[in-house]
Every structure is written in C-alpha cells, then in structure tokens.
Design a protein around this nucleic acid. Sequence first.
DNA 1: TTCCTAAATCATAACCGTTAGTGTTACGGT
DNA 2: ACCGTAACACTAACGGTTATGATTTAGGAA
Lengths: 190, 190
Amino acid sequence: MTVPTTGRRERKKAATRQKIADTALRLFLERGYDAVGIRDVAAEADVAVTTLFSHFASKEALVFEQDENFEQRLTQAVTGRGPHEPLIPALRREIQAMVRHCTGDGAAPIYRMIDASRALREYEESMRLRHAESLATALVADPDLSQSATACRTIARFVIDAYALAHEAADPDAALDEIFQMIEAAWEVT
Amino acid sequence: MTVPTTGRRERKKAATRQKIADTALRLFLERGYDAVGIRDVAAEADVAVTTLFSHFASKEALVFEQDENFEQRLTQAVTGRGPHEPLIPALRREIQAMVRHCTGDGAAPIYRMIDASRALREYEESMRLRHAESLATALVADPDLSQSATACRTIARFVIDAYALAHEAADPDAALDEIFQMIEAAWEVT
DNA sequence: TTCCTAAATCATAACCGTTAGTGTTACGGT
DNA sequence: ACCGTAACACTAACGGTTATGATTTAGGAA
C-alpha cells in the first residue's frame, strides 16, 4: 500500500508552503513579528502575496503551523483510549506532552515572540477555543461517557484551560498536577 | 463637596462618545455589522474618523460598550462580599445576573448580530480572557482565601467558562447549576 | 475682559492585512 | 499530443487603523 500521493505537483506545493513558513519564521525571529510585513515575507520567499494567502489563512497562521496536529491529538486521546481506560488521566497525559513540547528549549524563542505580540497572543487563544470545541464534540459523542452534554463541554474547556495555565506557570508540571486534581473532582461530581 | 467634574468640556466629550456609540449600534443593526464601515459610522455621527478612534479602540469595541462594567462587577463580587461569605456562591450569583442580563429580550438582536460576525465573536472571547485575568488577580490578592495562586487562577478561568457555556446553552439556568456544582467540587478539593 | 494652554476635534493621507479580478504556467490524466 | 485544472502571478483595491499637523474651544490666569 504505497502512498499514491507522490505527484510532482503536490511535492512542489508542499515545498512552496514550507519555504513560505520557513522564511516567515526566520524573518519574524530576526526583526520581530510586527516589524515584518506580509509583503516582506512574500518577497523574501519569492512568491506572490496571493500565493502566500492561498497557503496560510492569515499572518498569524504562519507562526502556528502545527495546530491541526494538536486538535487531532486531543480528540484521539479520547476516541483512541482503551476500552475501560478512564478519561481524565488520558487527557492529562496528552496535555502534559503538549506543554512539555511547547516549553522545551527549541520553542523558547518562538514563544518569546508570541508573548511580545498582542495579535499572536489573541490568535493563540482563539485557536485554543477551537480546540476546546472539537474536544467537546468528541466527548459528547463518546458512548462510554455517561455524563451530560453540558458536563462534557465544561470539561473540554477546563482541559484547555489547564494547558493555557500550565504553559504560563513558573512550574508547569506542578501546576498541571494541581489543576488536574481540580478537573478530576469536577468530573466526578457529575 | 459638589462633584467638580461638571465642566462643559467633559459633558460634550461624553455626548460625542454616546452619539458615536448610538449611531454605530443603529447602523450595525440596520445593515449588519460587516456591511457598515468605520467611515460610514463616522459620517453618520458627524465626526472625523480619528475622533471615533479616540473614543473607541476598535470597531468591535463599539458593540461592547459596557465591558469595563463586567470586569468591575466580578472583582467587586470577590472583594465586596461579607467577611465569612463563601466565594463560589458569590461568584455564581454575579455570573447568573450577567447571563440573565445578556440573554434578556432587549439584548437578543445584539447577540444575534455578534453570533453572525466572526470578528465580534473573537473579540468577545478575548474580552472574557481579560475578565478572567482580572478576576484571577482579585482572587490571588484576597487574604481570606487559603488556596494556592494556581488554584485561584484556575477557578477564575473556570468561572468565566461558566459564563460562556451558560450563555450559549439552551437552558442557561440549568447549565449554570450543573457547571457551578463542578466548580464547587474543583474549589473544595484544593 | 483678555490671553494662554491644553484638550478635543478635524482633514488628509498613508500603512498594512486581506481579497477580488484576471491572466499565465505546467502538471497529470486521457 | 491534448485538454482541464491546480498552482501561481500581478495589479488594484478594500477596510480598519494610525500618523501628521492644523483648527477650534473650554477654562483658568493676568
């Protein structure tokens, strides 16, 4: 079952996308996000502005390239867990992995840049809201859960909160411990 | 001690601000938020575009005029509660009042408009994040609370989540009941 | 009153992210 | 070899926002 998607067209398209993303991130880190315009990125990547926007929906999206990944990982942590594996620890494991990935040394300059730009911070937050909504959908649809739809949607938001709070905490691991204790209690009361 | 802030200048400024807000809301409801430009609002209110932006930080801010109010009410629900009054019920009362105010008949067309515009929905969410942060600050500073700073910040976000979830629920009161049961459990576990 | 300062407003033009309109190239199936 | 179409390019615009600098006007001081 070899992957049939090895056309030259798709390779070129992926290469263009990657070149744009790489160029953008490099320029942003060199000169600062707000000091680099879309026209600068397009020129440096040697593509038209319209091409750039056919690959990325917005300037902020150039920075958050892996987001869809996050969304899938969260819903998979729900749908792909063992038959009688409890929900909250599974979610906790996934969130912890994400936090560790984003607070690692490699991501440090990027998150310094994000914190420095209001537009990027707001985009990140609205991204998280999307993640919460898709997680909520997955929870509501799970037949193994006996909780109400409201409880599922609530827990979805709480879990995303845990990510955000841990991410900005001085000690992310300790914060996650504490927050997930609270989430567990909230989940079990229903 | 008569209030010395009764200058003609301040009255005129307030009048200008109000005229802009009223005109904007009227046009938005008549023609739709996205179909009305800033230049339209300014022309109809008979002010310069720069004057409009000296009163409101953005186009979206024209719609959410009472927000600072919300922020104050939340922090006052914390700082202004009785000496031994428990925290969560006080917060719950305030959130319930806000939800009822925003789901009342008078606010229905406005919230229909907000739901119809992506920009307004995102602005509302980033507004709520600000509210969560100022609530978190109030909680951390409260000497009557023995919980950790992390727990305080977590509960602040949970409370704002409650508002958002109840607001979009089919039965806001029932949703608030359920969500605040969860919040109570999360708070007491710490 | 008269004058001075600072606040409020104005008019214009620009900036920047984003999109529409309109081609042009070149990949891939037939 | 041919044709449909996906990817890309170019130009120009749109709309929110900001910079610039002038002009008016409130309100206190001389």
